[in-house]
Nucleic acid binder design. Structure first.
Lengths: 134, 134
DNA sequence: CTGCATCCGATCGGATACTG
DNA sequence: CAGTATCCGATCGGATGCAG
């Protein structure tokens, strides 16, 4: 994949896109909250709490506001309850999460799978539409 | 991309692969250090410091040991100097980093590019070999 | 039960100085 | 050049309380 020389973009970066992406996204629990909402379809406060062992209400509340503020989530108030929905920007983080699923399924198979055998995304999600990335 | 129902893998996860991937990887500065070594080809302690404004020697030292311990990096001692190299596992994080580059180039274009115009990976790195993922 | 707020100890990260 | 040591503030996590 790599040569000896720096990989330079055709248009220079004013700021590193990796660094600017890692605002809220880089904080603890954030990715897992996006996983809950985006993949597990768990979109209410205490459901997210139950889906994410170790997460406390204080941190969840904090991250939800930060994610809303940064435009990843939308707070949806329906009759007597609150739901959290992904915005378009939030949905665009799901490929990043799939990247981590792929990585973990390959390099941490012993913890991820009962039989400890590494697996690829195509095996885990046979029907998933594939997109070209890198 | 999404339905209303949870996205379930063909083989159940014993632990969430996203969560297990986010050990050292999820800590502050880790991704940028991997960027320095993997993309910028900056592989020495003080070079990494200079390439990463805000990073302090204490944290860099800490992250390098953690990354080495977790199998992402190899410490290479050559004549009178130390270099840090990616292992195979470390190289496999580069697609994740490209994901963040793609994300930031789309959603934070105002900070990333002088002309504030969002760009795709294929425009930024025309020659980059593309692989199907998700 | 849901969606927080408050307090408080533990851990993490930043600043600075210093060494082989 | 390649890190350590020390100190301190910021953030995190755990327990508890509380209103709707």
């Amino acid at each position: 994949m790599l040569s000896e020389k720096p990989l330079l973009p055709s248009v220079p970066f004013r700021e590193c896109p990796i660094q600017v992406s890692l605002g809220v996204l880089g904080r603890k629990w954030t990715m897992l909250i996006l996983r809950d909402i985006g993949f597990l379809k768990v979109d209410r406060f205490n459901q997210i709490m139950r889906a994410t062992p170790g997460l406390t209400p204080r941190i969840l509340s904090l991250r939800l506001s930060q994610l809303e503020e940064a435009g990843f989530l939308r707070r949806v108030e329906t009759d007597h309850s609150v739901r959290w929905a992904l915005t378009d920007k939030g949905e665009d983080t799901l490929p990043l999460l799939l990247g981590f699923i792929e990585f973990g399924s390959k390099w941490n198979a012993d913890e991820v799978f009962e039989d400890k055998r590494p697996r690829r995304l195509s095996e885990l999600f046979p029907g998933l539409p594939l997109r070209k990335v890198a």
